[in-house]
Write a protein that binds this DNA or RNA. Structure first.
Length: 253
DNA sequence: AGATCGGCCTGGACGC
DNA sequence: TGCGTCCAGGCCGATC
């Protein structure tokens, strides 16, 4: 599932491909993917020159001359170029020199004209964060998944960062020492995952159709019942904040 | 106000 | 083999 490292990988590929190009036309195949009518999307972006592509949390931001186009890949979203239309093609963007396809099996993704609301999305997870921001009366795993507190961490990297920090996902109201350690591990694991072009656990691929490789380096995510890489105690799988959560009962207190 | 839960969606894994 | 059921999890809106 695309989280910050996967979206960053996609954005780094999109930037040189899209900068300076124009949206000549757009075909919205599944209207539920967009937050507006097909006509509104077409009107907002057709003919517009693309100034830049950036990322905030898990959102891809395409800056046009007179508008912003925001894309969220949801669980199974993919952006591909010059591929054949499939049963899961939800939108097709015609550019000067290429065709950009938005594919999405489960349709949890979204394409929206405008920018993501600031009250929904906090500072990007790669930015500095003060430890007190994590001090909430909720399981720390749920805090990490709360995009209004920090944007970009999803289920995989929450589990992996908590493992590296030695903190149990169910811990509440973290003190400043442990919170600082966790923030450092969040930054560390995200940076490493970007280096490895993200994790491919379901169907994530980059704009060239390539899988990431960081899933080979997961310590706990998807490893329930398998031995902890550090102490060999079996990794436990529980549900926290409605999400499958993996941790080592011995290493994470 | 902040925390928690259910719904959206579909392919794949599982059990009988 | 085939059918039914459950599970995965991004975010959002409703409810506690």
């Amino acid at each position: 599932m695309p989280e910050l490292p996967e979206v960053e990988t996609v954005v780094r590929e999109l930037r040189p491909r899209l900068r300076g190009r124009h949206f000549l036309s757009v075909e919205i195949i599944k209207e539920r993917i967009v937050r507006h009518s097909k006509q509104d999307v077409a009107q907002a972006i057709t003919g517009s020159r693309i100034k830049d592509v950036s990322r905030q949390g898990k959102y891809i931001l395409i800056e046009l001359e007179n508008a912003w186009l925001t894309i969220h890949l949801g669980m199974t979203g993919q952006i591909l170029f010059n591929t054949l239309r499939t049963a899961y093609t939800r939108a097709i963007f015609q550019l000067d020199d290429a065709t950009m396809m938005y594919e999405d099996v489960r349709m949890f993704g979204a394409i929206e004209v405008g920018r993501v609301r600031a009250d929904r999305l906090g500072p990007d997870a790669l930015q500095a964060l003060t430890p007190d921001k994590l001090r909430r009366d909720a399981p720390i795993k749920a805090v990490l998944l709360n995009q209004a507190i920090l944007g970009g961490v999803g289920n995989i990297y929450a589990d992996e960062a908590l493992y590296r920090a030695g903190i149990r996902p169910t811990a509440r109201r973290l003190g400043p020492i442990r919170a600082k350690r966790l923030i450092d591990r969040v930054h560390e694991v995200l940076a490493e995952a970007i280096e490895h072009k993200g994790s491919s656990v379901s169907n994530y691929v980059d704009t060239e159709g390539r899988k990431g490789t960081f899933q080979q380096r997961h310590n706990v995510y998807g490893r329930g019942g398998l031995p902890c890489p550090s102490c060999a105690f079996p990794i436990r799988r529980i549900v926290v904040g409605g999400r499958g959560t993996h941790f080592c009962p011995r290493c994470q207190r």
